[in-house]
Computed example of a mutant assay.
Amino acid sequence: MSSTQERDEREHVSQESDERVGADLARTLEEAARALLERGEEEGVEHTLGLVVRGAVQTVPHVEQAGISLVERGGRVQSYVPSSQVVRELDELQNELGEGPCLDSIWYEQRTLVDDMDQAHDRWPRYAPAALERDVGSLMSFQLFTERGSAGALNLYAARPHVFDESTADAGRLFAAQAALVLHGAQHIQGLHLALDNRDVIGQAKGILMERFGIGQQQAFSMLVESSQHTNMKLVKVAEWLTGEHEKKSGAS
């Protein structure tokens, strides 16, 4: 076989491999999107992020382990849907040490690529040896950016060094984008539920006033608004106080 034929054969095999990876990726993302729609809010979010993580392990070349690091209140990073105990340990370790590629991606960079963990001692002098002890040779970490800023990072691990290149980074970025969309939707859902909860407690407070004073809905609402203005408290806080006092008295009687 001539060199030209060999080159053509390699290009054909490479093209078929790229098409297969693309088809697997598309199928995984479709399953993740469908799962979010079919399941309940919190369960759907966790299940869908788990699908994204498993899909990344199954689809992105050379990725053997994966997980998502999410920022909690107070800035602490929580390991979420890790594919293994090692991934969970590495997240917890970064919290303890205050250094590591996942933290860098969350707070500073859109993407952190570690081509060889053995060469990362200068950057993360305590994290790098710990990662090597857990057979992590390469790592890619992608920031999950939503409307409220950085929500966390998608972290992809490989045992061997020098296995991630721009093509694998592009595939990983697609999974990170899907995870960010899921988190964006979850934040919207949380805001919607907060609004519904506020509406419910205000409705309860109106009902208490209507029963106590024999007034209509509009008058009861006006009383809540006036009380809010006079006490310099938010309307929902006034409603919460009123319903709390009503429950105390009901329990006492």
Results as ranks from 00 to 15, higher is better:
Ala56Lys: 01
Gln143His: 09
Lys249Glu: 11
Leu70Val: 15
Gln58Glu: 15
Val225Met: 08
Asp135Gln: 03
His47Gln: 02
Glu226Asn: 09
Ala153Gly: 08
Leu235Asn: 11
Leu194Thr: 05
Leu29Pro: 10
Ala151Ile: 04
Thr48Glu: 03
Phe221Cys: 07
Leu51His: 14
Tyr108Gln: 14
Gln143Ser: 05
Glu64Leu: 04
His62Thr: 05
Val236Gln: 13
Arg10Phe: 00
Ile189Gln: 15
Lys248Ser: 11
Gln190Tyr: 06
Glu41Lys: 08
Ala195Gly: 02
Glu64Arg: 09
Glu240Arg: 14
Arg34Trp: 11
Arg7Pro: 01
Ala179Thr: 04
Gly149Gln: 00
Lys249Ile: 12
Gln143Cys: 09
Gly149Lys: 01
Thr168Ala: 15
Leu70Trp: 11
Pro129Trp: 06
Leu224Ile: 11
Asp91Thr: 14
Ser228Arg: 10
Asp104Cys: 05
Gly251Val: 08
Asp104Gln: 07
Arg54Trp: 07
Leu235Gly: 11
Gly40Ile: 05
Lys206Arg: 15
Gln119Thr: 05
Gln78Asp: 13
Gln217Val: 08
Phe213Pro: 03
Ser105Gly: 12
Leu113Lys: 05
Pro125Val: 07
Gly191Val: 00
Thr231Phe: 02
Val225Lys: 14
Ala153Pro: 08
Thr243Ser: 13
Gly216Lys: 11
Asp135Val: 02
Ala32Trp: 03
Leu242Ala: 09
Gly67Leu: 04
Leu97Ser: 10
Glu147Ser: 13
Val63Thr: 04
Pro82Val: 02
Asp116Ala: 06
Pro125Ala: 12
Glu16Tyr: 07
Val45Gly: 01
Leu29Tyr: 09
His121Ser: 07
Ala56Thr: 04
Ser167Thr: 15
Gly44Val: 12
Arg7Asn: 02
Gln218Cys: 05
Ala169Asp: 07
Thr48Lys: 05
Ala153Lys: 11
Gln110Asn: 14
Gly216Asp: 11
Gly50Thr: 09
Leu36Gln: 12
Leu139Glu: 12
His62Ala: 12
Gln204Ile: 07
Ala171Ile: 15
Gln119Ala: 06
Ala171Trp: 04
Leu181Gly: 00
Val52Ser: 12
Lys234Phe: 08
Leu132Gly: 01
Gly152Ile: 10
Leu183Asp: 04
Met140Ala: 09
Glu46Phe: 05
Ser17Gln: 14
Gln110Trp: 13
Val77Gln: 12
Ser227Ala: 15
Leu70Thr: 09
Leu209Glu: 01
Glu64Gly: 04
Gly50Ser: 00
Gln190Val: 07
Glu133Met: 06
Trp107Tyr: 15
Pro129Lys: 13
Leu181Lys: 10
Ser250Ile: 12
Val45Trp: 11
